[in-house]
């Protein structure tokens, strides 16, 4: 469990990225921090591995104040995946994945063996092991990034808009892959995005952030959709524009689900969903559906 207790971060130029934030991030669940730019979501994420230190307040991991931990050591025990993968361009894929293992003194042979296993885990062909990151597509690089984040089998995985820079088809693939991984591994995932649909898809718990790191609403996707806390949340998730006000229209193969703008969002079927987070119905909104 990660806990923020009245945490404030003020940068030297005077901007308050986060203002007395209190937040509990449960273990083995995916918590998504969603907000537009300037909402302090990345700052919050980086306070968990001490990339950023709070100006005041306490961040605890499993009851221990992390201010007392050595940053370099702390970071080696927490997985981190970022946008544009952040891979080291001068290291082969296999060595990129094994980076943290090397840093923690795991023998080279064992580290590489583990890296190959991780390539299987994230669905990367082992043939890519000896390539350099620049020889991979954006989606493949992102998989390498995830494998690297998982290398030391950390309890906590921090993901900073990891799928923000890939095209929609690859993004959707990577999102499904992450859901699968999370079912298998059960990490404490903290995921930052500005895409509310991505948040609804991946999050067990979602924190919608306003400017200054203020939490507008914290809850499950169902709670947020069915009972938005205020106008800001309504507007953010799209209920105010009617974008999520779905209705049924008869179609040739069953009932079509039509969103508030009159576009078809999907087809209503009778089976209940068999995987993924709990949902009120089969429809998932316009951009995450389509299957």
């Amino acid at each position: 469990m990660i806990e923020f207790r009245s945490v404030t971060k003020q940068f030297p130029d005077g901007t308050r990225a986060v203002d007395s934030l209190s937040l509990v991030i449960p273990s083995r669940k995916t918590t998504v921090l969603v907000g537009s730019s300037g909402s302090g979501k990345t700052t919050i994420l980086r306070m968990i591995n001490r990339m950023v230190d709070p100006t005041s307040g306490v961040v605890e991991i499993d009851g221990d104040d992390i201010a007392g931990k050595e940053p370099v050591k702390l970071r080696r025990g927490i997985g981190y995946v970022m946008q544009n993968s952040g891979l080291l361009p001068h290291r082969k894929v296999i060595d990129n994945i094994a980076t943290v293992l090397y840093l923690t003194g795991v023998a080279r042979g064992r580290a590489r063996g583990r890296a190959l296993e991780l390539m299987d885990t994230v669905g990367l062909d082992r043939a890519f092991a000896d390539r350099y990151p620049s020889q991979l597509s954006g989606g493949q690089q992102q998989r390498v990034g995830v494998a690297r984040g998982l290398a030391v089998d950390p309890n906590i995985l921090l993901m900073d808009e990891p799928f923000g820079a890939v095209d929609p088809i690859v993004r959707s693939e990577l999102q499904q892959e992450l859901l699968r991984l999370q079912r298998e591994l059960g990490k404490t995932v903290v995921f930052v995005t500005h895409d509310i649909d991505e948040a609804f898809l991946l999050g067990d718990q979602i924190a919608i952030l306003k400017t200054g790191g203020e939490i507008a609403q914290l809850g499950t996707p169902t709670e947020i959709l069915s009972n938005p806390a205020d106008d800001f949340v309504s507007s953010f998730v799209g209920t105010d524009r009617g974008a999520r006000a779905l209705h049924l229209a008869p179609g040739r193969f069953g009932n079509l689900v039509i969103d508030g703008t009159g576009r078809p969002a999907g087809i209503l079927v009778n089976e209940s969903p068999t995987e993924g987070p709990s949902w009120p119905g089969q429809t998932r909104g316009p951009s995450t559906d389509g299957r």
Partner: peptide, 22 residues
Amino acid sequence: EPDVIQSAKAMGYSTWGRLVRV
């Protein structure tokens, strides 16, 4: 690339290690 430096930092490179290895 600042992204690479940030990511090296997040991986747990020390300041010296980051300079020499990255």
